Simulated assay, not measured.
Amino acid sequence: MSRLFARGRRTVPARPAPGTALAEAVDLHVRLGQREVLAGIDLSARAGEVLALVGPNGAGKSTLLAALAADLPAASGEVRIDGRPVGDWSAPDLALRRSVLPQAAALSFPFPVGDVVRMGRAPWAGTPFAEADEEAVAAAMAVVEVGEFAARPFSALSGGERARVALARVLAQRAPLLLLDEPTAALDLRHQELVLRICRERARAGDAVVVVLHDLGLAAAYADRAAVLHDGRIAADGPPAEVFEDALLSRVYRQPVEVLPHPRTGAPLVVPVRAVEGSYDGLVSQAGT
């Protein structure tokens, strides 16, 4: 049940029950110019789980994430957030329900890091939850390990530091649906693991997390479900242990791979087949069939 506040008549969402679909795509088609980028997507992101969107470059992962965020319109089909078509939500109401981390974080002015993270609290202005602003900002900065440079200009940070500050802004927003586009792309090994652990923690706390990943190992280790995109369609959707299969991934990525169980955890390990000289062309041909 949502709570209604008089200022702007916004409804603040209650915590979702486990398994609730917080974002849904129903027969979703998206066009960019004359090109159909997504064709007939049916997908849901549920409270309490991490959903990884994986697939090769150009498969439609970021487009799907943007459509789920209501940042791209559907040519046909429908996207629903918190049970309602995205067009039925005002921008302020939508900001209470979903937070979005784009691929690149850029600001035109040299805002201090602390102020950038604090921007994530803007949707809660005028509600009783605004009283938690400073606590939410401090907690988000601490969990992504950027507290020590709170006063530094955002523009003075490295690419990886900017990525972590941008994630802190998303976490400070405390929306129940997190949509993260390649949050590990600019990060070193330690911080890649940190970000995916945070995703798991948010899912355990009841949020729905949708994350675009290129690293299939990270997806296999941390995601409850993986949707494999190929040419604008979903080639497979399910637990990574079920959908990360040699033949499927070899076909989708046009690269021969082997999927092996991790010797300790059993999680799938996706390993490229590195052929001996002279036999690679044949393997690539097999992967494309």
Rank of each mutant, 00 (worst) to 15 (best):
W124Q: 07
L68A: 08
A235L: 12
E242Q: 15
R35W: 01
F244W: 12
G40M: 07
A139D: 13
P110E: 07
L218Y: 02
V54Y: 00
A106K: 10
A219Y: 00
H230S: 15
T11K: 04
H230W: 10
A275W: 03
D71Y: 15
A69T: 14
L216A: 08
P85F: 01
P183A: 12
G206E: 05
A91Q: 15
G266H: 03
A163G: 07
D133A: 10
A59I: 01
S99G: 14
L43N: 08
A104L: 14
T11L: 11
V276G: 03
D281R: 05
A6D: 08
A186L: 12
E182F: 12
A156L: 12
D42I: 01
A67Q: 09
A140N: 04
A21L: 07
A205K: 03
P261N: 11
Y222G: 01
A47Y: 02
V170A: 13
E131D: 15
T265H: 01
G160D: 06
V54C: 12
S44I: 00
A66D: 13
Q255L: 15
V252Q: 11
E135Y: 02
A185H: 10
G19C: 07
A21F: 08
E131S: 14
A67M: 09
Q103R: 00
R202W: 03
D246F: 01
L101K: 04
V209R: 02
R97T: 05
G266W: 03
L28C: 12
T289L: 14
S62M: 11
A175R: 00
L101V: 07
